[in-house]
Design a protein around this nucleic acid. Structure first.
Lengths: 263, 263
DNA sequence: GAGTGTGAAGTGATTCACAGCT
DNA sequence: AGCTGTGAATCACTTCACACTC
């Protein structure tokens, strides 16, 4: 019976395809490069050229776009301005987004001062902390640190859906719960704890030391590989397109279902 | 001929298997949770239990470990302390690692103050900036900002292989080149520019706004999905294990080959 | 000629399911 | 009985290669 309803939906709706999470991340990268091209007065760009800058395979770029429609002219390329707008619209980043920050430690303070958010249309609208001693302090930009108790009202009033979470590990889950209760739908988590969120809420992790660990692994592996093979051969390895770049990703799960219930 | 040599190598070397980049990231997550278990005096843990905490499929965890050996006891589980050490050793994070920081803007300053690095065994040994005005300034922790000219000598002297890059986008490539010249093998890049590195050097990107974009996409998709389907059905979506968590990754390419040469 | 759009092929990662040990 | 270790199956993502359009 469930099967049946889904079948119908699949047939009737205009191909609800699943978009790889990596595609979304790359769209964001493309958008950024398009913005730069635009400011250099470049009018048209080919998939080869844009892909080269973003460090991806040109076919990958075309495939990424093809999930959403046809935006280029064969034999010509893509209109820089219009492709940028299209991608912005796909991502939902045409207009400015309000963000709340929780945690005013070193990371939180650094993020407040950081100009990159505003450049991409994200604005910190309120700052909170769990440490009572921090409440009432004025941060850069004039925002005064508030108690988390004020979050629900504020989030509702300004319909804020994004939060940056920069509190100590052991408080992360507890604060996340409050964020979600207040209607937050997306959390950028700087604490190194995997938090559990209900369906409809997305989380992205920013975990510096994990990334450093992975760099360290690569370095030590390179060393042992070298030792092991004595003289480096001239063999070209399997990677086709200079491996990855960022890579990020996902953790969404927008349709119901709690995280982490057994198998 | 290339084929042939490779074939032989594959047969002779002890199964040089390729390890998914995601596996390395997860190892790092497991290690962190093991550390916590250890401090709670927990002696033994099962793959089910550890996987639950790390928010991954238990089979995934076992498979991740199986790339490197057999570390558990059937019917029992894993010894917390020894598994932690094993993973640390795989990652190469048993001993402390020295790191240089380039860029003393808001992000750089925040990272210096951040305690998470030291906790995981990463220590900032020197701080550099490209802005002459910043040189000579004393940062938190007593480090004095140096000119990049001093980098090669310092990196060599203390054999530093890791760098955190937190300079403006338009200077990222240029600074990365200097880092590489000085023998740096791993770069944690906070600037939103994809940098090109030669083989043997790894890069990891930390790009806040891209992650926010992806959260925004999820949020707007959730909204349109809801509008489209009217009443939310009870259908369980495709995700098996609550999708991902962090996700990170890659970009390594430790064996030669420049990044981004056409196809 | 140049460059997009896309089915098909290829590659890679995750999960299953169960044999095998303690 | 419980839990690991792992080949096989599945699922997901990427790249190829070429038909098609400008």
């Amino acid at each position: 019976m469930f099967r049946a309803t889904q079948k119908i939906q699949e047939e009737t709706t205009v191909k609800r395809q699943k978009i790889p999470a990596a595609t979304i991340i790359r769209l964001s990268v493309y958008q950024r490069y398009l913005k730069r091209l635009l400011s250099c007065e470049v009018k048209v760009v080919s998939s080869d050229e844009l892909a080269r800058r973003a460090n991806v395979n040109p076919a990958q770029l075309r495939k990424d776009l093809s999930y959403f429609g046809k935006f280029g002219k064969r034999g010509v390329g893509y209109n820089v301005a219009s492709l940028m707008n299209t991608i912005s619209s796909i991502l939902g980043v045409m207009e400015e987004h309000k963000v709340v920050l929780v945690g005013t430690g070193p990371i939180g303070q650094g993020l407040l001062r950081h100009s990159g958010f505003a450049q991409q249309g994200y604005r910190f609208s309120a700052v909170f902390d769990i440490d009572p001693a921090s409440i009432g302090v004025e941060c850069v930009g004039g925002l005064v640190v508030k108690s988390l108790d004020e979050l629900p009202a504020l989030a509702e009033k300004y319909s804020i859906q994004l939060a940056v979470l920069a509190v100590p590990s052991d408080r992360a889950q507890e604060v996340a719960d409050k964020l979600i209760e207040s209607g937050i739908k997306g959390i950028l988590n700087f604490s190194p704890t995997r938090i559990r969120v209900p369906g409809g809420v997305s989380v992205q992790y920013v975990d510096f030391t994990i990334l450093l660990d992975s760099l360290t692994y690569n370095i030590s592996r390179a060393r042992t590989d070298l030792e092991q093979s004595g003289q480096t051969d001239g063999e070209i390895p399997k990677l086709k397109w200079a491996s990855e770049h960022s890579w990020p990703v996902v953790e969404s799960n927008i349709h119901g279902q709690e995280a982490g219930l057994g198998h």
